[in-house]
Design a protein around this nucleic acid. Sequence first.
DNA 1: ACCTAAGCGAGACGGTACGTCTCGTCTTGCG
DNA 2: CGCAAGACGAGACGTACCGTCTCGCTTAGGT
Lengths: 205, 205, 205, 205
Amino acid sequence: MRGERDGTDDTDASGARQSIGARRNPASAAAILDAAEALLAEKGLGGFSIEAVARAARAGKPTIYRWWPSRTSLVLAVYQRSKQVLPEVDTGSVAGDCRAFLTSLLTYWRDTPSGQLFRSVVAEAQHNTEAAEVLAAYSDERHNGTANIFRRAMARGEIRADIDPVLAAEMLASFARGRLLTGRLDAPPAAIERVVDQFVGGLRA
Amino acid sequence: MRGERDGTDDTDASGARQSIGARRNPASAAAILDAAEALLAEKGLGGFSIEAVARAARAGKPTIYRWWPSRTSLVLAVYQRSKQVLPEVDTGSVAGDCRAFLTSLLTYWRDTPSGQLFRSVVAEAQHNTEAAEVLAAYSDERHNGTANIFRRAMARGEIRADIDPVLAAEMLASFARGRLLTGRLDAPPAAIERVVDQFVGGLRA
Amino acid sequence: MRGERDGTDDTDASGARQSIGARRNPASAAAILDAAEALLAEKGLGGFSIEAVARAARAGKPTIYRWWPSRTSLVLAVYQRSKQVLPEVDTGSVAGDCRAFLTSLLTYWRDTPSGQLFRSVVAEAQHNTEAAEVLAAYSDERHNGTANIFRRAMARGEIRADIDPVLAAEMLASFARGRLLTGRLDAPPAAIERVVDQFVGGLRA
Amino acid sequence: MRGERDGTDDTDASGARQSIGARRNPASAAAILDAAEALLAEKGLGGFSIEAVARAARAGKPTIYRWWPSRTSLVLAVYQRSKQVLPEVDTGSVAGDCRAFLTSLLTYWRDTPSGQLFRSVVAEAQHNTEAAEVLAAYSDERHNGTANIFRRAMARGEIRADIDPVLAAEMLASFARGRLLTGRLDAPPAAIERVVDQFVGGLRA
DNA sequence: ACCTAAGCGAGACGGTACGTCTCGTCTTGCG
DNA sequence: CGCAAGACGAGACGTACCGTCTCGCTTAGGT
C-alpha cells in the first residue's frame, strides 16, 4: 500500500536534516557538537577540521560558521558543553581532600574524552587569543572552586590563616595539568600521596 | 612531461645559497632554523608553516623535509637549539632558591622568544606523539636539574629527609608552566613570595 | 593544525570571481579555458602547467582539478573548444578542392593558435592513452568530413569508383599534418600544386 | 628499484662504475643510453626523466648533463643511436616498392622500440626548437632516401618524368607517420594495397 | 492564505599549505 | 679531469581545508 506509514518516516531515508523555519535548528547544533566532540576525542586537534565536522554531522559548512565563527570557538563550545564540575567531596581533612581532588581529576582526564578535550583547548590557547582568554577565565573559576578545600580547612583551623586558598588551589591543579599535558595521568596512589604530603606538610625539616 | 621548463630560469644570481657537495650545508640548516625560530617567536604555531619557513629562509621545501621530516620535528629542533639551562643560583636557602627559580623562569619566558617557543612545543605535544615524547623526556630532565635545589637543601638539613627532590621540582615547575600556558607570566614578587612560602612552609597551621 | 590562518585574509576585495552556489560557475570555466588556450598557443606544452593556468585565470587549482582531472584533459578541452571545421569549399574539381583544402589548412594552422594547439594535442597523445584515443577519434571524424571532396568527385564521375574516400582524405591530411609537425607550414602554392597533381593524377607514366 | 637488475646492467656485481681517468668513460655513456632507451621504450616520454635515467643507469646526474645538456638531446641521442635504415628492397615495380616500404615501416614501428622512440622525438619536437630542427633534418634525409624508389621507377620509365621523387616519398611516409602518431600501426595488407593503388594510380577515372 | 524571512544541506569558488617529485647546478672525494 | 653521489634552490604536482558565497528547499510567523 502506497500510503502506509510507520511513523518513523521523517525526512527521507537518508535522514537529511532540514530547516525548521526561520530559527535555529537545535538538532543541527547538537549533531555538529556531537560530531565535533567525537572527532576531538578520537583524534585530537589534528584531524579536527570544520570540513570533517560538517561531513560527520551531515551539516553544511555555513551552518557551522553561522553559529561558531571559527574553529576555536567550536572547540570551546564542545569543551564548555562537556565540562562538568567534579563532585566536591569533603573527606574532613585537607590532605584527604587534596588526594581525592588529584585522584579524581587524573582519573577523569584519563578515562573520559574530557582529557583530550582539555588538551585541545590548552593547545588552541597557545596561539589564539580568544581561546587564551577563555582558558584563563575558566582556570580562575575552577581554581576558585577548588579553593573551597582550603577555605574549609582554614575554617576548621587545620591550615594556616595566611594561606591564599585560590593560590593553593592553583598550585595543586597545576601539578595535575602538568601531568595531563605531558601524558602522565597514570600516577600511582603512592605518588599522589607523596605530592599531597609534601604540599600540605611543606618541605621544612 | 612533468616539470618541463623553458630556459627562463636564471636563479636570481644574487646571494643564492647552494650545495656544497654531497653533504649537508650547515648554512642552510642555520638559515632554516633561524627563520623557523623567528616565525614561531613572532606568530606562534599559527602562521608557522613549512612554506613560510622556506620562503623566509630562501630555502627549498625539500631541503627542509630532507632534514626535518615534519613540522613537529622542526619545531622541536628550534626549541632544542634555543633552550638553555638557566643559571642555577645558590642563594643558601631553599626558599631563596625557589624564589630565584620562579622569578628567573617567568622572566625568561616573558622576555625572550623561549616562552612562545615552549608554548608551541606544548601545543604541538597535545596532538603529536613524537612531540609528546620529546616534551615528556625534556620535562624529566629539567625537573631533575631543578631538583638540585632540594638535594642541596636536604644535604644542609634544611628540608625533610623524605622529600622527593624531583617531585618537588615538578610541583614548582608545574606552577610556572601553568602561568605560561594561561598567559600570566607577570606575577609580582609578592605573589611569588607567597607561592614559595606556602610551598616550602606547607599549609598546616 | 593544518591550514591554520590568522585573520589576515582579506581576499583583495577587487574583481574576485566567486561561487554562484552549489553549481559550476561558467565564468570560471571560461576564464580557465581562455588562460589555458593562451598559454598553449603562446608557449606550447612547455610552459603549460596547471599552476600557470590557475595564475593566469586567477582561479584556484582545485577549481581546475574539479572539472579537468588532468593536464591532458584540460589540453583536450581547450582543443575541443577551439576546433572548428574549415569551410568546405566546392571548387567543382577534385584538384581544386584538394588545393583549397591543403592551402586553407596550412594557412589556418600557421596563422591561428590552432596550429600550436593541435601540435600540443598530438604531443600529448604520444604518451597519454586518453589523449591518444581522443586524437584517433577526432582524426576519423575529420577524415570522414574531408572525404566529401572525393564523394562529390565520385558522384560527378571525375574519379575512379573504387577510390576509398576516407582513405584518400587521410592521405591528403597526413601530408598536411606532417608539415605541421615538422614545422613546414609555409609551402608555396607551387609546391601544393605539385602535391595535388601527383596525388590526383597518380604517378604512372 | 636500486637493486633491480635486468640484463642491461653491465658494471660488475658491486655496481660502482668509476672514472677511468681524465677522459670520457664509454661504459657510462652506454649505460646511460641503454637506460634511457629502455625507459623511453617502456613508458614513453612520461616516466622519462633525467633522474630516472640516472637511477636506472647508476650514473650521476652531472655525468648525464655533461654529455647531453638537456632531456631533449638525450632523447635525440637515443633515437639517433637506435635508428637504422630499413633495408631498401627493390621489387622491380613502384607499387611493389611502395607496398614493401609501408609494410616494413609499420611493422618495424609496431614490433620494435623504435616506434615509441620516434613518437617521443615527434612529441619533443612539438615544443622544443632543437628537437624540431633535428626532426626536420632527419625527415628530409629519410625522404630523400625513400625517394630512390621513385628515382628508380623514373629511370625505368614506369612513372611520369615530372614527378618530384622527394615529394612523393614525403607523401608516402606522411601516411605511415600519421598511422604511428594516431596509434594505428596494424593496417591489414589489403588497406596498404589500397593506399598504394590510389597513390600510384591516382584518383582520376 | 499568502508572503517574507531566515535556517538548512549542498557544494563551487579563490586561496594557502601540504608533502613529494624532478629540474638543472654545485661541490665533494675517490680513482 | 671524469666519475658516483647527493645536497641545494626552485617550483609544479595533485589533495585537503580554509572561509565565503549562492543556490533551492523548508518552515514559521506576520499580514
